[in-house]
Design a protein around this nucleic acid. Structure first.
Length: 571
DNA sequence: GCCGTTTTCGGCCCGACTGTTTTCAGTCG
């Protein structure tokens, strides 16, 4: 039972309790526990094995620790199973629809016996929803629209995809009458790998005019609601966008509020309450007072509760507030800190540009070094290299080196990890490389124990320097392989093998929690683009976003080093 | 259900918008 599975069971308990109208603080206790479990980088089953008390974790008390112990021991939770005899599980899916929360879900079940999205759709189409007390014609239509959206855009949008909508929208809004300030808040500003919707925040003397200007944008397909200070719309792409216009003296407070995360905000407010302050999106207020004592800038809001400003990327209530209270705010890595790219392809395998083009593109980005890493022969469809072609490639590299003394070209190969954990290149050739990358490109479906064993065997090879895109996931497209990531990071740290944060926005592999764990374990991290074209070299910024979310500083990432230090640090 | 240098009991974050309500509940962020 991994942490994800534990969290899912506790979440089901919270959902059922919510439908049953249980004590809201009890429900919150379960949700807090879910978050704590999800946020743990180490498997809780190991805590239990080692007899470490789970009650040391925030939000885990005696009962919750008992629940978790039972789940780990038996694979299920009797309390959850008992609850699910009272409420059908499929009712929980109804709650994921917009405009359907626990109360409405319960009512639909009680009045019409509806337990599934399909049944709800059928009832709505037949007009039976509108007649339920508390529901009406408009609610019925909203539910139908919500079901359609749910089916079309079930998954969250990639941040990089959202950018292609958000940035032009921001440009459009900057031309609003009298606009003074504008920013995208929410998970977009926190740079999460995917986003559910977009929250925009604006300041202008006439907020209604900004809202009107916004509503005139041609991409807007549907206006869900629109007032004088707020509007919610959907774009044709399915992306929901919220715009809020606030007063200048509230901008900082509103930016904190709408940037979130929700959990971060809750903790900030609690700090406020402890100091006799009430924090809202309008400002910071003393006691019952009406007068705001802070709120124009974000830093003012943090200062009001005794904190330095905290970067948006780490506002997840994963210890950043406590650390900030001690004066520890990380100096998160920036793009300018990176001195070279450690993973890219050329036309020798499946890249679209020649070695020389890739080299020139790296040099023009000011890099001091680059790693050329085409595929190995097992990936036949990419025209992967065998020993013979690799030797030929080295000749071309020598020629390009002569023409580009301004940058150090490191010889490499992205060597496939074969099914049994051996490497797809002869040892004497591996020894001739400056850097050896290894990756999984096949047999993703192996059971966890075998996959872990396979990877560990590969990492044991003394020539291996970097383990690339370790879980092989593609966001929204391919699940990560089943692997004991914790064990792999542990061993990599011991062996001095670095793990790659692949900056491709579809991969972002490792993910933030893995990177935090890598840092804890002292495992070296590199950020690489895996570029297949010169323009892909700019994907680095997505990797930087992800690294910042994990709280990584320049010192945590090897390719911020100068070339001599880098070669030393890579084994 | 969790938590505690004000408390082991009594707290636990805040506001806007919508729809169906004759004064407010539900949902969302």
């Amino acid at each position: 039972m991994d942490n994800v599975a534990i969290a899912r069971i506790l979440e089901e308990v919270a959902d059922v309790l919510e439908i049953q109208n249980a004590n809201p603080f009890r429900i919150r206790a379960y949700r807090n526990a879910v978050r704590t479990v999800q946020g743990q980088t180490e498997p809780l089953s190991r805590w239990i094995e080692e007899n470490r008390p789970l009650t040391e974790l925030p939000g885990i008390g005696k009962d919750m620790a008992g629940h978790i112990g039972e789940i780990v021991a038996t694979g299920t939770l009797a309390y959850r199973d008992q609850l699910l005899t009272e409420i059908p599980r499929s009712l929980l899916e109804l709650m994921s629809l917009p405009h359907v929360g626990p109360k409405k879900a319960k009512k639909l079940y009680d009045e019409l016996g509806i337990t599934s999205v399909d049944a709800l759709e059928e009832a709505a189409k037949a007009g039976r929803i509108a007649s339920v007390p508390g529901f009406g014609e408009k609610t019925q239509q909203k539910i139908l629209a919500g079901i359609a959206d749910h089916r079309r855009h079930g998954s969250r949008m990639l941040l990089a995809d959202a950018e292609t909508f958000v940035e032009p929208l921001l440009d459009w809004l900057r031309r609003s009458p009298g606009l003074e300030r504008l920013e995208a808040a929410g998970s977009y500003r926190r740079r999460r790998e995917t986003i559910g919707d977009v929250d925009l925040l604006a300041v202008a003397p006439d907020p209604a005019a900004v809202i009107q200007h916004f509503l005139a944008h041609p991409w807007i397909e549907k206006v869900a609601m629109a007032g004088d200070t707020r509007a919610t719309v959907s774009l044709g792409s399915g992306l929901q966008v919220d715009l809020r216009a606030v007063a200048p003296e509230s901008y900082g407070a509103a930016l904190v509020y709408f940037t979130g995360s929700k959990e971060h905000n809750v903790k900030l407010r609690r700090r406020g309450v402890e100091r006799g302050l009430r924090i809202s999106e309008y400002g910071v207020f003393r006691g019952d007072g009406e007068e705001s004592i802070a709120g124009r800038e974000e830093a003012d809001v943090y200062a009001a509760v005794g904190l330095p400003w905290i970067p948006p990327e780490i506002r997840e209530d994963l210890g950043e507030i406590e650390a900030a209270a001690q004066g520890h705010v990380p100096r998160l890595i920036r793009r300018e800190d990176v001195r070279g790219d450690l993973h890219m392809h050329s036309t020798w395998s499946d890249g679209k540009c020649s070695i020389e083009e890739m080299v020139a593109a790296c040099a023009s980005r000011g890099y001091g070094y680059m790693v050329l890493s085409d595929h190995s022969k097992a990936l036949a469809m990419t025209n992967g290299l065998d020993a013979r072609r690799l030797r030929e490639q080295w000749k071309e590299i020598d020629a390009v080196r002569a023409r580009h003394p301004e940058i150090r070209i490191l010889r490499s190969l992205e060597v496939d990890i074969l099914a049994d954990g051996s490497l797809d290149l002869e040892d004497e050739m591996l020894a001739g490389l400056d850097v050896v990358l290894v990756s999984l490109h096949s047999r993703f479906e192996l059971p966890e124990a075998r996959q872990t064993e396979r990877v560990l065997r590969a990492l044991e090879h003394p020539e291996v320097s970097i383990f690339c895109h370790p879980t092989a996931r593609l966001i929204n497209r391919r699940r990560p392989v089943e692997m004991d990531v914790d064990a792999v990071l542990r061993r990599a740290a011991e062996l001095g093998v670095a793990v790659e944060l692949n900056a491709n926005p579809h991969r972002l592999d490792l993910k933030d929690s893995h990177l935090r764990r890598a840092k804890e374990l002292g495992c070296k991290v590199v950020i690489s683009t895996d570029a297949h074209h010169t323009r892909d070299l700019d994907l680095l910024r997505h990797g930087i976003d992800q690294a910042r979310r994990a709280g990584l500083e320049a010192g945590d990432v090897l390719n911020t080093l100068e070339v001599e230090e880098l070669v030393q640090a890579l084994r």
